[in-house]
Design a protein around this nucleic acid. Structure first.
Lengths: 115, 115
DNA sequence: TGCATATATAAGCATATGATTATATACTGA
DNA sequence: TCAGTATATAATCATATGCTTATATATGCA
């Protein structure tokens, strides 16, 4: 007997493909506990702004993340209302917390970025 | 408090990337309940034998599946002893059973393939 | 209004991926 | 030993992916 809903295989493989990139997977894990803006990710991943922006777009296109503009910045957060969020969540739960990245940002005064 | 072991993010993304292909993901789900040989997969996926073989190789290379020759045939099965099997298992549990494919094979007399 | 900052988008490019076809290898049974 | 079946591997190719650079857009502030 199945108590949890199942996901269509095509759909599941599409989601897994998106998470099958270390940058995007880390982003999702970070976003699960912390809102982040683009420039914070640029700092964390030491990656160019367009590269970060393009990863976030892929996550947003299938609505795994939400974005919200606040002044100059656009903050990203996990979309907990996504139909497949339970699936995503169960995957993220197997991954180590990424609090050091955030702590580092804070130590450098770069958290809540660009303040 | 974490009760379950976590997986390194690099490692996890590598696994997810492999599962992020509909053919391989379906293979894994099938193999979770049924041993299968290459020619059965060829039948199920309506895909060329080399294509199937190459997918299986990728799964075997990181030891997600085991192979065992029995006469002419090589049977594949899930490697439940894989260090990250709990992670894999938790993903597969969200996917719908693929028993129809096996039932179809049996109906066509193609199960335990090539007998 | 004009400049600085944050972000998005477009174009280009090198590499990865997943298929195909052709061929090699391994086992079975006559 | 030879033919048939199952599988693996190699070479090739079209497409996908993820980065780069260049540029556009949006906001805040002097």
């Amino acid at each position: 007997m199945n108590t949890t809903a199942t996901i269509d295989l095509q759909r599941a493989s599409q989601l897994l493909k998106l998470l099958g990139d270390p940058t995007r997977l880390t982003m999702m894990k970070l976003l699960k506990s912390h809102e982040c803006c683009v420039c914070e990710f640029v700092e964390i991943f030491k990656m160019s702004q367009p590269a970060i922006s393009q990863h976030l777009r892929k996550l947003r296109d299938i609505e795994l993340v939400k974005e919200e503009r606040r002044g100059q910045w656009i903050f990203f957060s996990i979309n907990e209302n996504h139909e497949d969020y339970p699936f995503i969540k169960s995957i993220l739960e197997h991954l180590p917390e990424q609090n050091e990245s955030i702590a580092e940002l804070e130590a450098q005064g770069l958290r809540v970025c660009c303040q």
